[in-house]
């Protein structure tokens, strides 16, 4: 399709509108936040970031997101494997319910976690462990919202893996574990990695599920996105922008890396 319309005028105006929308909606806001955070000079940018509450929030976010990602990588690899390789009753139901965290509003997710393990829950009565308003609750929220990524990254690769590749390895005298580590794992790895990185970037960005259950104690359970929200609420958009820029840059680097990984996988 060279052009969507017979008339050149129509076709040009459509192109222009679509690209203005694209640039106005995506590119300008991102450029805006970068220029905004440096608008009062580089020193104020550094000042904003050297606030201990700010960098502690960022470090805490990175730490908890890393833990959540590790957990999800392990669980996700297992479930992805089970869903592709094994036949068992209820498989289809499980496969469809995997996407629940994508469909469920994150605020609702946070709220449910609060109900399940919060101060008035059965869990608290039975075990007496304070989860909510502590780090484990944040990790739990992150695990929940990023749950599908690794599984969905892994499944197509495992499905594509030709059974005969494995069989070829067996006929060449390769043992079961050797075949797994030399043939199957390398096929799975790009999917696991890109899934894990998507999960990580989503986890550091997560707000809705976290804000209700983290308690938001500055320096202890205040994560970056909630810190940014707080700064906006207390009318310090400059401080919010500085932390945002730091967080954004990390996310963009991850995204760029995933792009590279995917392109490498295809070649």
């Amino acid at each position: 399709m060279n052009s969507l319309f017979r008339s050149q005028k129509w076709s040009y105006s459509f192109r222009t509108i679509v690209f203005i929308y694209f640039i106005g909606l995506i590119i300008i806001p991102i450029i805006g936040i970068y220029t905004q955070s440096f608008s009062s000079g580089i020193t104020s940018f550094i000042d904003n970031l050297s606030d201990p509450l700010a960098w502690k929030a960022v470090l805490l976010t990175l730490k908890l997101a890393a833990i959540a990602t590790l957990i999800n990588t392990a669980i996700g690899t297992m479930i992805g494997w089970v869903l592709v390789r094994y036949e068992f009753p209820g498989k289809r139901m499980i496969n469809s319910v995997i996407d629940l965290p994508f469909a469920l509003p994150t605020a609702v997710a946070g709220f449910i976690i609060l109900l399940l393990v919060g101060p008035s829950s059965l869990f608290y009565e039975w075990f007496g462990i304070d989860v909510v308003f502590h780090e484990p609750a944040i990790v739990l929220a992150m695990v929940f919202v990023t749950f599908p990524f690794v599984i969905r990254g892994l499944q197509p690769l495992l499905e594509e893996l030709d059974k005969s590749e494995e069989e070829a390895a067996y006929t060449l005298g390769s043992s079961k574990s050797r075949t797994f580590f030399r043939i199957i794992l390398p096929t799975m790895l790009p999917g696991i990695l890109s899934g894990a990185m998507l999960a990580f970037s989503r986890a550091i960005a997560e707000f809705g599920a976290v804000v209700l259950i983290s308690g938001n104690i500055p320096g202890k359970t205040l994560v970056a996105s909630v810190y940014i929200f707080g700064e906006i609420e207390s009318n310090n958009p400059q401080g919010a922008a500085a932390v945002s820029v730091l967080l954004l840059t990390i996310s963009f680097l991850i995204l760029w890396f995933i792009h590279k990984l995917n392109r490498g996988g295809q070649a």
């Binding site: 806001p29 991102i30 805006g32 936040i33 905004q36 998507l198 970037s201 989503r202 550091i204 960005a205 997560e206 707000f207 809705g208 970056a224 996105s225 909630v226 940014i228 929200f229 906006i232 958009p237 919010a240 922008a241 945002s244 967080l247 954004l248 996310s251 963009f252 991850i254 995204l255």
Partner: peptide, 14 residues
């Protein structure tokens, strides 16, 4: 996809 929703909102406010 890589932008935290809060930051997305902040951009518009800014």
């Amino acid at each position: 996809f890589a932008v935290s929703p809060v930051i997305g909102g902040l951009m518009i406010v800014l």
